[in-house]
Design a protein around this nucleic acid. Structure first.
Length: 806
DNA sequence: AGCACGCCGACT
DNA sequence: GTCGGCGTGCTC
């Protein structure tokens, strides 16, 4: 019989990357693979995950202390996914497994201090005689009060840490460790009748009028059958009243688990929508795969407004009909409330929404609803991938090209990759959807890895809006220096005249993008980061967009002392000012990071705009996503090339996607839309094709460039970043690391580039140097990297399939 | 991550 | 001589 468990301890240290063996005590026979347990680890008690069982007897093993749940937390699919994740992304097994545990650790440990059992008071006074009085105060406090927490002791004078350490060392006190389970389920008591309604009515009659509360309670119970604590409160019935009737044997209560639900969106009624031919054709391909229960992936390339969401809903309905579960991923829950609302309208309580703003308790509830099968659909950002679904039928990635699908801290996974893996081992379908698929995904679809489904018409054949490209170089030659060109002004004026709405995109927040001394050319930079400061109008301050520090605007240039300091470049605040000057009566709302800091502020701004409270919505890329407002007929893009000039191989892809998404906001209802795009690079293929809604044209240009420079999809990338607080040190460390990588570059399929300073060489006083690996043999390189043991180094970040090479 | 063990400077 | 600084190294 297996009585030894291999346990991954949940400790966020990358150096602990192996399982530890523990004895399974006889009184805990249920322990099996996938269970969460409490184990002794060093001098502490920590949460652990059982990953396998063994029966080889080994000496010196500690025993598992307890189980944390009454069911296995991980199923086979989840364990395999975690194992793959840790191997592919070079993270520790604990890091990978923690993704599946909402709210980080499932346990909370509280330390308490109490007097040692065999305390010798005489010896104690001798020991403490030489010590300051505080030592004696602390000891007598502990003697008087029994077990006390450190928080309590902290109120006492003196440096408590040192005193406690001394007392522990001399065995005058001991400390205990109480481990509590977190995320307890919430329950409420429902009050009901224990007798028939008739006898209850008789009892009510029999009560004297003075006992009005009891009469009211009986009356209400006869009416409704069962009452919740909230309803009792509304009826002004106290717990005492309930107790009285309980003792008379008339009422009783039962405890039921409740689920916290902060996502109280108004659920709109479902209109039965007639599917378009394209939607039907898409479902004809997906349906049989779901029925057969085999893994297959689809790429739905559908123009903005082609009705992809309806296909997702029907596919999920199909999976649910087969009693299989669904995971629906959206790039950012705050920007995609419309799709969430549509799923809730279609599936009601079968949908669980997971997002980062959920509290630990809400997260647990969501988890339990899925795990217990009370809900079968989870919709959320990338973390929803790790939901406990038993019988996975389909995973949907809406807007699959979005970079938010890549997690930017360890484990640096890409949701698309994980989705494909999880679905493959579960025999489930994956549906990737986008109007502008990532170059990698589209390339895979063309080579047959995904089934390509094209939806190139908008629902009801609404035409895509015509795009006017304004060459800002020519504007400048004509002496027009305003950030808003005449073409854009004219379009806005017309839309406002017709009482239609406009969306304006400018991918830069703040007022001006840099501050320059016209005397010596000095650009004001952040003290802690190697980046230009941005001028913000509110508070008349300079802000660093990397470390958020505010600097005051200097009167004179810190380099040459000149007073000739000027602001250059335009941010959203400056455009807002310009729009106010051009259209004084128009109501303008700005949406960027500065105006959306509050919880759900996106939603509120978008809702107000959709309701017609504002005429113009101005903002950064968040205005280009998700919403579908019929009255928006004009879209203006202030500077189409903001992202184009970044030194990154995905700059063109990013630009094309943003332009296409933004342009797609116009004319989604029955009114024709228009787009004006201002640019300094009107001939660039990302902008030319963005203006023509021509994905194919863009792709054909881009793929040539990718092939020439051996970038993805023709290779896989690994970015290694070395960090240090000292500039010389960081280069020394990076060069040394590059030398260690020589066995990696020995393979002809692999090239190592760098070290070279990161595009922003210093952030928050930390210098960063990158090494880039391009390879056609990912497994070999990651194998080497694992052997070199650099993944656990604190000053090194390994990013597998990085989203940028900056 | 914690916590122990361990080897060198400033004090009663 | 002791206290205590935080540099390695281990945790079944």
């Amino acid at each position: 019989m297996s009585n030894i468990a291999q346990v991954i301890v949940n400790i966020p240290a990358r150096s602990i990357d192996k399982p530890f063996s523990y004895l399974i005590p006889e009184q805990l026979p249920a322990i099996d693979i996938g269970w969460r347990v409490l184990v002794p680890f060093g001098s502490r008690k920590v949460e652990g995950f059982v990953i396998s069982l063994e029966d080889e007897p080994t000496d010196g093993l500690k025993s598992i202390l307890a189980v944390l749940d009454d069911y296995p937390w991980f199923n086979d699919n989840m364990l395999k996914t975690a194992e793959w994740l840790s191997r592919y992304y070079l993270c520790s097994p604990a890091e990978a497994m923690r993704l599946f545990v909402p709210g980080l650790s499932g346990i909370k440990s509280t330390k308490a201090y109490q007097a040692a059992h065999a305390i010798d008071c005489e010896q104690a006074s001798i020991l403490l005689a030489a010590k300051p009085a505080e030592y004696r105060t602390v000891l007598s406090y502990i003697l008087d009060h029994g077990p006390v927490s450190q928080a309590d002791l902290a109120k006492l004078p003196g440096s408590i840490e040192t005193i406690l350490k001394f007392l522990l060392q001399h065995k005058l006190i001991i400390h205990t460790d109480t481990v509590l389970k977190r995320g307890k389920a919430s329950t409420i008591r429902l009050i009901n009748l224990t007798v028939s309604k008739e006898s209850a009515a008789q009892a009510e009659q029999a009560l004297p009028p003075s006992k009005s509360a009891q009469r009211r309670l009986l009356h209400a119970l006869i009416q409704t059958g069962e009452l919740s604590p909230t309803e009792l409160r509304n009826l002004h019935i106290s717990a005492d009243t309930v107790r009285k009737l309980t003792s008379q044997g008339l009422v009783a209560s039962r405890e039921v688990q409740i689920f916290r639900n902060s996502y109280n969106t108004i659920i709109h009624k479902v209109d039965e929508i007639t599917l378009t031919t394209a939607q039907q054709q898409a479902l004809q391909q997906i349906g049989p795969v779901l029925k057969a229960g085999i893994h297959k992936s689809f790429l739905i390339h559908g123009v903005t407004g082609s009705g992809k969401t309806q296909v997702y809903i029907k596919a999920v309905a199909e999976a649910r009909g087969l009693n299989r579960q669904a995971i629906v991923l959206v790039p950012e829950i705050a920007l995609t409330s419309q799709i969430v609302a549509r799923f809730q309208a279609a599936f009601g309580q079968d949908v669980v929404v997971m997002h980062s703003k959920l509290s630990v308790g809400e997260r647990h509830d969501a988890w339990r609803r899925l795990h217990s099968g009370q809900a079968g659909i989870v919709i959320g950002a990338r973390s929803a991938l790790f939901a406990p679904v038993d019988n996975l039928g389909v995973i949907i990635l809406d807007e699959e090209h979005e970079f938010t699908y890549k997690q930017e801290d360890s484990p640096r996974y890409h949701a698309r990759q994980v989705a494909l893996f999880r679905a493959r081992i579960a025999g489930a379908a994956v549906i990737l959807g986008s109007a502008t698929p990532s170059v990698e995904t589209y390339h895979q679809a063309l080579s047959g890895e995904h089934t390509l489904i094209t939806m190139d018409k908008r629902v009801d054949n609404v035409p895509l809006p015509p795009v006017t490209v304004v060459d800002m170089r020519e504007e400048l030659l004509k002496g027009r220096r305003s950030v808003i060109s005449p073409a854009l002004t004219e379009m806005l004026a017309e839309a406002l005249f017709r009482k239609e709405q406009a969306v304006i995109l400018l991918n830069r927040r703040g007022y001006s993008t840099f501050v320059l001394c016209r005397e010596c050319g000095h650009v004001l930079k952040c003290r802690h980061c190697d980046i230009a400061l941005v001028y913000h109008t509110p508070g008349h301050s300079l802000r660093c967009h990397y470390c958020q520090e505010r600097h005051t605007v200097p009167d004179t240039c810190p380099e040459c002392g000149s007073r000739y300091i000027r602001y250059f470049g335009a941010g959203t605040q400056k455009v807002e000012e310009a729009l106010n000057a051009l259209f004084p009566t128009a109501k303008i709302i700005r949406m960027d990071q500065d105006t959306t800091t509050k919880k759900m502020a996106h939603d509120k701004i978008l809702a107000a705009f959709a309701a017609g409270t504002y005429d113009i919505l101005l903002g950064t890329q968040m205005v280009a996503k998700g919403h579908d407002i019929p009255n928006v007929t004009a879209v203006g893009i202030i500077s189409a090339d903001t992202a184009l000039n970044l030194p990154d191989f995905r700059a063109a892809e990013r630009t094309f996607a943003l332009l296409t998404q933004a342009a797609g906001r116009a004319g989604r209802g029955n009114k024709a839309g228009r787009v004006v795009m201002q640019t300094y690079n009107p001939d660039h293929y990302a902008i030319v094709n963005g203006g023509m809604h021509n994905y194919q044209g863009f792709y054909e240009n881009e793929i040539i460039f990718r092939r020439q420079l051996n970038y993805p999809p023709y290779s896989n990338l690994i970015k290694i970043t070395v960090q240090a607080g000292d500039e010389i040190q960081v280069h020394r460390n990076a060069n040394q690391l590059a030398a260690e990588l020589s066995p990696v570059s020995a393979n002809a399929a692999t090239t190592v580039i760098g070290p070279f300073p990161a595009s922003v060489a210093k952030v928050k006083d930390i210098f960063r140097v990158n090494i880039l690996i391009k390879t056609k043999d990912m497994a070999e390189v990651t194998g080497h990297l694992a052997n070199l043991n650099i993944a656990c180094r604190k000053d090194v970040i390994i990013d597998i399939d990085p989203i940028n090479v900056l």
